[in-house]
Nucleic acid binder design. Structure first.
Length: 993
DNA sequence: ACGTACACCTA
DNA sequence: GTAGGTGTACGTC
């Protein structure tokens, strides 16, 4: 930097607050995301960059930086713990804009500067003085009086909102003292917003007058005794210490360590498309147009960029910015021009919210006496209006069943931040709206159940709630929202614009405990919510929620909403601070409506097929029972491992293979197979009997019981937050473990059928986990094999054993296949030996050989373990984390187990991420192809998606589904290995698979 | 009535 | 060797 250069220093943090209050409250059209300050910032930056010369600044910048506050733990806080202590939390609408303005800065290709321990003002002061010393001119884009001490003949300030330059005369005019006396003046006056003490009774006018009279602060303090006014003299004499402290606080530091030198701030060429991409995402149409014109770009050809906000972009269609996202643009991570070290941030940043929110809510007593019951429509409407005003409401439903497909709505609860007391109040109010509480004897001798008086009619309440729940500009917060989503969907309401505290917790802490509301409440709020059984009883005395009296229900239900809101306030900033917003917004939140729809659709099963199968299985099992009793010489309960063990290893004296951890003889299939191999007839029959009875009890007998009385279909329930790796789980019934591996079991799949005029279409990823492994561990041979489409297990065998692929014995391939799977599972010699029924030493040799042939695998395993030990978690290529808190356990087997799991998680988890992405993208892709009504996704089985497709649409749907799935990793991650999907359609699941 | 162990189904 | 859920037996309360 040299004489004649002109450095612009933009006070980013100051601008945000100023713009927020000064400019109209603009929100993004599509989803109500508040963007007023962002808009003001972008307009100002564009103006500065393109026409600064024509404004009152009068010069064009050669260097420019945007400076932000980073840490609330500044050196001022060390000097004076109460510094900025009475500063309130920023308004909710401002919160998402802090991050957006940083993103805007990067979109403008400008350095975005923040340094831990210092405020933006100190950084600005340091740059300004350095530049000045080199002979450059400086313009500080800010109107903050705290910066006025920096003004000199070469350093000006610029109030962008008033388009007014501020020089020495302007400072004198405004404050009555020249810039170099601003420190003295501020030391006397103090600053109530920053909690800087100063002298009571002395404001800017008096301070200026005193400084004029005595020259400077030191002289004034030395001669304070001469002041005539009694009160003023006393105050000043009593405030010597306060003035000293204040002077320290208001004096800007000019020695901040700078990571970016002045020369690094040189103004670079604008990247038109990058900027337009951001502006389009913000939906700033007129500025987009101006920028496009100026840089001669075709804005319509540029995709909106991926932006990350703390909350509010809920209504964004799942594919809106999907196409423009890139793997390198992760949230809250360093970019090359961002100086940032870990730790907390300024009142505004997520990191600071993490600290402050936790401090407020952890252990804060929850006052249930404030909960209200809403019994009339007017009051409900008032609450809804208040919710709209806040833009934020916690919501919960109370129903008659845990199954959302069966549940009848009994009431809803709401919780709001109570802003009536003061704008930054952390008080929360919550209410319960009973809608379907019933009372009366439910027997033959009475009139039966009657609705309790004092409840809003269901229809009217739903109509009012619909207005709130479908309004994307109000963020609905729920715990396990998929449940409430389905319940409300069945009542004609499609919730839009939401956050789910369960999913936020899952993204933050998968692997650390569960994510149910009660445990989250204990963990984060130190509060135990009323147990459900205290309200509805348990066991024999259990009643459905509609029979709970309304007063009790209010305490329970309102508390749920209250706790949910508190959890959100505590957890949401953590998400941003941890850089996990993207995982949450891409892989979790958009899946909620998708899964809800899948659950609602269900799948048809043919009860007759199952019933016939059940009969066959019963007969076959009975035949085995006779033979078993014959061979055993007595009747016993074959299903009891204990009794079976006594027969086999006690009475019959067979050689016992192994014991279970409780000391019982193991009767596992493995042990029985071994005995059968020695020529014993009984164990084989036990194994076969078990298989038959397993199929009967778990599938053919149980499945018909899950057929919904009205839809006549089976509606599974997916859990989004059950696994550590990111996989879904399925229950009631579990449709992810329907038999497939042998002919007898596969018959059960034939009972899963399509409705007339449709077929079931099954599309599954081929070898997805090995492909992920090839990608993450960068194994050249594996990548090549997948690129060439060769048999991966045969290739492995060939590499390891030197056997040519042509004419390879199946046993050789089988071993290689087991090893490949073993690798994914975090191989151990013990496990592999078990799997292949070979000696440990032999398994050990295989593993050694494998590592020699594929050294990248060993590297991957070691580095993954190291990462897990260091961080306590591992990450998928999409950024999802899986936590292994026991990875450093002193128990060797526990430690080894955690290491294997940690090795597996990035592989299994990435595969899970990929299919999640596919699921989010698939319905829009089908809709775009005009197949939305004809193709319905029904089930997910980890690497497989099952659709029900109209016969005539199958040929069109199949390529859409295949390409969406094969490209699902893109563009977030560009896989170095192709993904392969195989699909087939048939009348039943067995033939389709 | 509820929790745990065992066995076994899936990817 | 990874990740799940469910049914049965059997213990405890």
């Amino acid at each position: 930097m040299k004489n004649g250069d002109h450095l612009f220093l933009v006070d980013g943090s100051g601008f945000i607050f100023r713009a927020f209050h000064a400019l109209p409250a603009l929100t993004r059209k599509s989803d109500g995301l508040p963007v007023g300050a962002v808009s003001g910032f972008c307009n100002m930056m564009w103006k500065l960059l393109t026409e600064a010369r024509d404004t009152s600044v009068g010069v064009t910048p050669t260097h420019l930086a945007v400076i932000f506050d980073y840490s609330s733990k500044t050196f001022r806080k060390d000097i004076y713990p109460d510094y900025k202590a009475n500063r309130s939390a920023p308004p909710e609408e401002l919160i998402p804009q802090f991050g957006l303005i940083r993103q805007a800065t990067r979109a403008f290709n400008l350095p975005c500067i923040e340094t831990e321990g210092f405020e933006a003002d100190d950084i600005i002061a340091t740059y300004a003085r350095k530049a000045e010393a080199l002979g450059a001119d400086v313009t500080i884009v800010s109107s903050d009086k705290d910066l006025m001490q920096l003004v000199t003949p070469n350093v000006h300030m610029y109030d962008a909102m008033k388009d007014k330059q501020i020089g020495i005369p302007d400072v004198i005019e405004k404050w009555g003292v020249p810039p170099e006396k601003m420190i003295d003046l501020q030391s006397l006056t103090g600053d109530s917003t920053d909690n800087i003490p100063g002298i009571p009774g002395i404001g800017p006018k008096t301070a200026a007058q005193l400084l004029e009279e005595y020259g400077d602060l030191d002289t004034l303090m030395a001669r304070a005794g001469e002041i005539k006014q009694n009160k003023r003299r006393e105050n000043i004499l009593a405030g010597v210490e306060a003035v000293k402290l204040s002077r320290q606080l208001v004096t800007l530091r000019t020695d901040v360590p700078l990571e970016l030198e002045l020369d690094a701030l040189v103004l670079e060429q604008q990247n038109g498309p990058k900027l337009i991409s951001f502006l389009k995402a913000m939906q700033f149409t007129s500025l987009t147009k101006r920028v496009a014109d100026a840089c001669d770009c075709d804005a319509s050809a540029i995709e909106p960029s991926s932006i990350t906000v703390e909350w509010g972009d809920t209504a964004r269609g799942p594919d809106l910015d999907q196409k423009a996202e890139t793997a390198d643009d992760k949230p809250a991570e360093k970019t090359e021009k961002t100086q940032k070290s870990a730790e907390t941030g300024q009142g505004a940043t997520p990191a600071d919210l993490v600290t402050s929110r936790e401090a407020v809510f952890k252990g804060q007593e929850i006052d249930r006496s404030r909960y209200v019951t809403i019994r009339d429509l007017d009051t409900l409407k008032q609450w809804i209006a208040a919710a709209k005003d806040c833009g934020l409401v916690a919501f919960d439903t109370e129903t008659t069943s845990l199954d959302p497909m069966q549940a009848e709505l009994v009431g809803v609860s709401l919780a709001l931040q109570d802003n009536s007391a003061s704008p930054d109040s952390t008080a929360i109010r919550a209410a319960y709206v009973p809608l379907g509480h019933k009372a009366g004897a439910d027997d033959l001798f009475s009139d039966g159940l009657k609705l309790v008086d004092g409840q809003i009619p269901m229809g009217a309440a739903l109509e009012a709630l619909k207005d709130l729940l479908e309004d994307t500009s109000v963020l609905k917060i729920a715990q396990n929202l998929k449940y409430d989503y389905l319940v409300m969907k069945r009542h004609g309401i499609t919730i839009a614009g939401f956050d789910d505290t369960m999913l936020i917790s899952y993204v933050l802490e998968a692997g650390n405990g569960n994510h149910g509301m009660d445990s989250l409440s204990e963990r984060w709020l130190g509060h135990t919510p009323i147990p459900y059984k205290d309200v509805a009883g348990s066991g024999k005395s259990l009643v459905t929620f509609d029979r709970v009296d309304i007063e009790k229900a209010t305490a329970y239900a309102a508390e749920d909403a209250d706790v949910t809101l508190r959890l959100w306030l505590v957890l949401k900033p953590r998400l941003v601070a941890a850089g996990l917003t993207r995982v949450y917004e891409r892989l979790e939140r958009p899946l909620v409506p998708v899964l809800a729809m899948m659950e609602e659709r269900g799948i048809t099963i043919d009860k007759q097929i199952l019933s016939r199968l059940s009969g066959e299985l019963a007969q076959k099992a009975a035949a085995f029972e006779d033979e078993i009793y014959e061979l055993a010489g007595e009747r016993f309960n074959i299903g009891s491992p204990k009794q079976l063990g006594d027969i086999l290893f006690g009475k019959m004296g067979l050689p016992g293979g192994s014991k279970t951890k409780t000391g019982q003889w193991s009767t596992s299939a493995q042990v029985l197979e071994d005995l059968a191999a020695q020529g014993e007839p009984l164990p084989r029959k036990i194994v076969d009997w078990r298989q038959l009875t397993k199929l009967k009890s778990t599938y053919t007998d149980a499945l018909p019981g899950y057929v919904h009385p009205e839809t006549k279909r089976v509606h599974t329930s997916y859990s989004m937050a059950a696994t550590t790796t990111g996989r879904l789980s399925s229950s009631e019934p579990n449709l992810q473990n329907i038999p497939v591996r042998n002919a007898e079991g596969r018959k059960i799949r034939t009972a899963f059928i399509s409705t007339p005029g449709h077929k079931l279409l099954s599309a599954d990823y081929s070898q997805i986990e090995l492909r992920v492994l090839a990608h993450v561990a960068e194994i050249p041979q594996l990548r090549q094999a997948f690129a060439d489409g060769v048999d991966i297990h045969a290739m492995t065998a060939s590499e390891m054993f030197g056997v040519p692929i042509e004419g390879m014995p199946s046993e050789v391939r089988r071993r290689a296949k087991a090893i490949n799977f073993g690798i994914i599972y975090g191989i151990s010699a013990f496990g592999l030996a078990n799997q292949l029924s070979i000696e440990r030493s032999e398994a050990s040799d295989y593993i050694k050989k494998y590592f020699e042939r594929f050294p990248g695998i060993k590297d991957y395993m070691e580095s993954t373990k190291e990462f897990a030990r260091e961080h306590g978690y591992v990450e998928t290529i999409f950024g999802r984390r899986a936590h292994y808190p026991e990875i450093k356990s002193s128990n060797a087997s526990m430690r080894a187990f955690n290491e294997r799991a940690a090795i597996n998680a990035p592989i299994q988890g990435a595969a899970a991420d990929i299919i999640r992405r596919a699921m989010v993208q698939i319905e829009p892709a089908l809709a775009k192809a005009g197949l939305g009504e004809k193709t319905r996704m029904l089930l997910q089985v980890h690497d497989e998606l099952i659709f029900e497709v109209e016969d005539e649409a199958i040929d069109a749907a199949m390529p859409v589904i295949i390409s969406t799935m094969e490209n699902a990793a893109m563009p977030a991650v560009s896989m170095r290995v192709p993904l392969k999907v195989e699909a087939r359609a048939a009348h039943n699941w067995d033939e389709a698979h």
